[in-house]
Amino acid sequence: MNIYILIFSYLLLVLTIILSILAIHVKDLLAAVIFMGGGSLLVSLVFLLLQAPDVAMSEAAIGAALTMAIYIVAVKKTEREDNDD
């Protein structure tokens, strides 16, 4: 793998991990869902760099768009605050 592409993928992976930690840490559920969708989008870029364009398309269309819509509807129909202790 080219060294620049390698550095770029390291950056993407670190950002994905940060977004995942934020997604389970924030109190606002809508923000958590949006962090989750951003993580999915970055992972789809990583799939593209790993030479898997089919998987990248599938993840971008399903994981980042449809899944987020389903989450947002679920949050809208229930409540937005995470009242964890």
């Binding site: 364009p53 089919d54 398309m57 599938s58 269309a61 449809l66």
Partner: peptide, 13 residues
């Protein structure tokens, strides 16, 4: 690249 699942998901979007 692509196929039935990706195209179907795009239509649903």
């Amino acid at each position: 690249p692509g196929g039935g699942f990706q195209g179907g998901a795009l239509i649903a979007t």
